[in-house]
Amino acid sequence: MSDTVVTDALALIPASRDGRGGRAVLGLAGAPAAGKSTLARHLVAEINDRTAPGTAGYLPLDGFHLSNAQLDRLGRRHRKGAPDTFDAHGYVALVRRLLEETDHPVYVPDYDRDLHEPVAARHVIEPHTRLVVTEGNYLANDEVPWSGARALFAELWYVEAPDEVRELRLHRRQRAGGLTDEAARDWVERSDRPNGELVKRFQRNCTRVVRGDALRSR
């Protein structure tokens, strides 16, 4: 599977025109802990190894989590990870910038699982980056503004893993983040599981399905 998906991702890199290369964005959607971030990082590393450093870049949706302060203000912290706990408009705007602004570096936020907060400018998309791999739970959603991002992707792949594999990963993730065993199980059942069921509803909007259950996911 690995070689096939890397080859297919390489094929999305736009052909050079008049000595100038274009840029494309590959989206990876899927339920929580399906293996999206692992696959995205794998694709970026493999493409850069096979071509030149910086040919591929990484854009995680998790960098657009609302801060805990904003979630507290909105009364949504207990639902962190749901669609309305992200700056979705900001994410769509950045995807659009990456396609339009290719003459200067564009800085990209990330999410820090130790701080439990988004972190600005952890990643950078360089002017010579030709393919941006972006991943997140809600990239296939029909609702505005998510649907606006989907229209910008060259392709949108659905990363799939069995529910039991995902939920084991999610439980480990919450335990690593400091929750007790009981609190971790409660969070998975109350938050991650319904979010995953929502994500599954929009699989039909993806161009292909790739398996993520063999990948080690955070």
Rank of each mutant, 00 (worst) to 15 (best):
D8A: 08
A9D: 15
L10E: 15
L12V: 06
R17G: 04
D18G: 12
D18Y: 07
G21T: 12
R23A: 03
R23N: 04
V25F: 01
A31T: 14
P32C: 09
A33C: 14
K36Y: 06
S37R: 11
L39E: 07
L39A: 07
A45K: 14
A45Q: 11
D49K: 10
D49H: 14
R50K: 13
T51H: 00
P53F: 03
P53L: 03
T55D: 01
T55K: 06
A56Y: 12
L59K: 14
L61F: 06
D62K: 13
G63A: 05
F64W: 15
F64S: 09
H65V: 06
Q70P: 01
H78K: 15
P83H: 11
F86S: 03
A88R: 13
A88Y: 13
H89K: 13
V92F: 00
V92Y: 03
A93M: 06
R97Y: 02
L98W: 11
E101T: 11
T102S: 00
V106S: 14
D110Y: 01
D112S: 08
R113G: 02
D114P: 00
L115D: 09
V119R: 09
A121T: 10
H123S: 04
P127K: 12
R130I: 04
A140E: 11
A140T: 12
E143W: 08
F153H: 13
E164G: 00
R166L: 02
L170Q: 13
R175I: 08
R175V: 12
L179P: 05
L179E: 15
D181V: 06
R185C: 03
V188R: 11
E189I: 03
R190A: 06
N195R: 08
N195M: 04
N195H: 12
N195T: 08
V199M: 02
T207W: 01
T207A: 02
L215K: 13
L215W: 15
